[in-house]
Amino acid sequence: MWKHIAANFLTIAIVLLMAVAGVVAWGQRQYVGPGPLAEAICVKVPKGGTLSRFADDLAAQGAISNRYIFRVGADYSDRSGQLKAGSYLIAPGASMEEIIAEATGLGVSTCGTEVNLRIGVAETNVVVSDLDPATGQLAELAKFDPAKGPVPDDFAALVGEPDVRLRVTVVEGVTSWQVIDALSRVDFLSGEIKDIPAEGTLAPQQYEVERGAVRADLVARMSAAQEKTLAELWEKRADGLPYASPEEALIMASIVEKETGVPGERALVASVFLNRLAQGMKLQTDPTVIYGITKGQGVLGRGLRQSELRGRTPYNTYVIDGLPPTPIANPGADSIAAALNPEKTDYLFFVADGSGGHAFAKTLAEHNDNVARWRAIEAEQGAGN
């Protein structure tokens, strides 16, 4: 009899163990498998937020199918106490495992509100945007010039929110003075920068920063990024270029950057200037003359005068031979690549063609025809205003 009872007990235990194992296996599949979310959402974890509240928010928005499995999975993976304040973009079909990894990772918000100091050639603005999770597009909420204002009343409080992303964007072609001037005008950075970095040595790109980030440290990141880009592209340079050093290539890249904003033209523009150097011609490029006047401290805001085109400065390439002594702006990676791997052409001239690009010419006669066409376009545009 006792053997029969023991056998039945063992059978029941085995069945229960199998049932438990089945439940565990089912729960694991629920935790790591695709979730029910049909469209991307943005979920906010407030400062001091709990895993239980986070699970409730996710379930309410249809991102997870079972709160209990979500919490157990987080506990089992030792992530339940690692929740970080922020706003997190949850992709369609994201698993519970992926969601908890997103919210307990680096703590960098991937959606919600973004504050971006955009340092441009003609203007600098602080742009406040909000990410639409469905489209992945940023919708602009506010924009202001930190040098002029007015600063929105709630801006300081907004920047203090833990889930707001802070970024600094350096646009191709800005000068080092413009970068330092702009950085000094926003309160979410700290510290002073005593010296303006050498022209051309700051990488134009987007930088994510934290509140109170030290300005000098950010500038060091910019310098390191540009140094790395220049070194990598220098190793891949074409044969036969006239540069004595990477720094000379950087000077050429800055001229290319200022002469065209059309990506497909950069290597052509570089070929024109290299062809001129090869033939002993002067570069004759207006942006260098302008830099000699402004020293990179803002834009000229008017056309060049004939006296300025004739005046001798180290940057007047209508007067001096060869390259100017330093870059005239901070060129992006594409312009550096163009200076180091230019197109092989016979072009010696270019002028605006009315479409936003340029018309290139091999001879002065062809160039004069292109100039005449451009002046006719300018006249038509002037008559239409």
Rank of each mutant, 00 (worst) to 15 (best):
T175V: 08
D153C: 11
T113P: 09
Q178D: 02
E97C: 08
P133C: 01
Q205I: 08
M96W: 02
A142Y: 10
Q206T: 15
P162Q: 10
Y207L: 09
P204L: 00
L106G: 14
N116R: 05
A216Y: 13
C111D: 01
T104G: 05
Q205R: 15
L131R: 11
I193H: 09
A213Q: 15
T113R: 15
S95N: 02
L158A: 12
G173W: 01
T135L: 04
E97Q: 15
T175I: 13
V179A: 00
I99D: 07
V126S: 02
I196S: 08
M96E: 08
L189K: 05
V171N: 07
R185W: 08
W177H: 12
F144W: 00
G212E: 03
D154A: 15
V214T: 11
V108W: 10
S184C: 00
V170K: 00
V168T: 03
Q206Y: 07
I99K: 00
S190Q: 11
R211N: 14
D163L: 00
E98W: 12
P204M: 03
E102K: 12
Q178E: 13
A139E: 13
D145Y: 02
C111Q: 04
L138I: 01
I99G: 04
G136R: 07
D145K: 00
A134K: 15
F155E: 07
G212K: 08
P133Q: 00
E208K: 09
S95P: 02
K194M: 14
E172M: 04
P146S: 02
V179S: 03
G149V: 04
A142E: 12
T175L: 12
A156H: 13
A101N: 06
I99R: 04
A134N: 10
L106W: 09
T124M: 04
E161F: 09
D187W: 06
I100P: 01
E192K: 12
E199M: 04
F188L: 08
Q137K: 10
E172L: 05
R165N: 09
E140S: 10
A156T: 14
D195N: 14
M96P: 09
T135R: 06
L189F: 03
L189R: 03
A134L: 11
R167D: 12
A157Y: 08
D195L: 10
A157C: 03
V164Q: 06
A139T: 12
P162K: 12
